[in-house]
Simulated assay, not measured.
Amino acid sequence: MRRILVPLIFGIVGCAVLVSLGLWQLRRLEWKEAILAEIEARIAAEPLALEAALGAPDYTPVTLTGRIEGDPLRFIYSGSEEDLVVAVQTEEGRRIMVDLGLAPMGAAAALPEGPLTIAGNLDTPVGKGTPAPMVQNPWAARSPEGMAEVLGTGPVFVVAREVAPPLTFVAPLPVTTEGIANNHLGYAIQWFGIALVWAGMSVYLIRRTLRSKD
């Protein structure tokens, strides 16, 4: 019994630690799913007028009416498409950034000068896409401060979901929860799998110790 005491304790403690890590990841999974559900509910909520939503958290739905002013920032997504971020002067006199969505390369020249009604969600820009041309957009990733400086806007950033009248050559990229990582179930399975392997190795070691005794 003394000979198997060490591997037995080693196996029990190791399995307990690994299983506890798996259970912790399951609790993290519940926490993340609750956050995602809250974000999805916020995205789908009734939109507010932009002025009423200022200071609200990301993903808050808003509506606004305004005109595109100046040249857009163009972020390359593929060899044929680019994401357009423009400055919009609202009817209330506020100048903000709006991500219109994907357009064919060079289509920015066709952006309308008339008023647009935009429904979308507040968001914080993240680094995705390559600015083009680099001479006009000298930063390597989407910096809210950098874009606001170049566009001459305030820090407010809206991702368009619908534009009226519609821009037939632009496909909106509305905010969703798809880009938010939620890998906790996979991590839990990994920890439980390692615990199973650990248990198997411990049983093998104990049986081998018993056989060597005989």
Rank of each mutant, 00 (worst) to 15 (best):
I4K: 02
Q136N: 13
A171N: 12
G146W: 02
E38Q: 15
W139M: 11
P72E: 15
T117P: 01
T65L: 03
T153V: 09
V17W: 04
A109I: 12
P47R: 13
A160T: 02
R161Y: 01
T168G: 03
G154F: 06
Y77N: 14
I12W: 06
T209S: 15
I180T: 03
G146A: 05
A107W: 12
T65G: 08
G200E: 12
P172V: 04
I194G: 01
L173P: 00
N183S: 14
G79W: 09
V6T: 10
K213L: 14
L36W: 07
E113V: 02
A34P: 04
K213I: 05
I43P: 02
I35Q: 15
I12V: 15
A199P: 04
H184A: 02
D214C: 00
P165H: 04
L21P: 01
G129Q: 09
S143P: 00
G66L: 05
A181R: 12
L100N: 08
L111H: 11
T176D: 04
L54P: 01
T177Y: 00
L111G: 09
W139N: 01
G186Q: 15
S80Q: 13
S78L: 07
E149R: 10
G114W: 08
T60Y: 08
P115F: 06
V135S: 14
V19M: 02
V163S: 05
N183P: 08
D83Q: 14
G79K: 06
R67N: 13
Y187V: 04
P104N: 15
E33L: 10
T117M: 06
L23E: 07
L5P: 04
E82P: 03
A16L: 11
L151S: 07
G193F: 09
G11C: 08
P174T: 03
W31G: 04
I189C: 12
E81K: 10
A119P: 00
R94S: 09
R142C: 01
E38M: 03
N137D: 13
M201G: 12
R67K: 14
A141E: 12
N183R: 13
V126S: 14
D99V: 05
P155Y: 10
G200K: 07
A49D: 15
V6N: 02
E162A: 09
E162H: 08
F75I: 08
P57E: 14
P131G: 11
V175Y: 00
E92I: 00
A199H: 11
L196H: 08
P7L: 03
E40T: 09
Q136P: 00
V197Y: 11
D58Q: 13
R207C: 14
P57Q: 08
M105E: 13
L116Y: 06
L173A: 02
R2W: 08
P61L: 11
N182W: 03
A110E: 15
A110P: 00
E149Y: 05
T176R: 01
L185Y: 03
V135K: 13
T176S: 14
G146S: 04
H184R: 00
R161L: 03
G127R: 12
A16C: 07
G66H: 09
L167G: 01
S212M: 10
A132T: 12
P7R: 03
V17P: 00
M97Q: 15
G114I: 01
M134S: 14
F169S: 05
L48S: 12
Y187P: 05
I206Q: 13
L102R: 09
G22F: 01
T63V: 07
G152E: 08
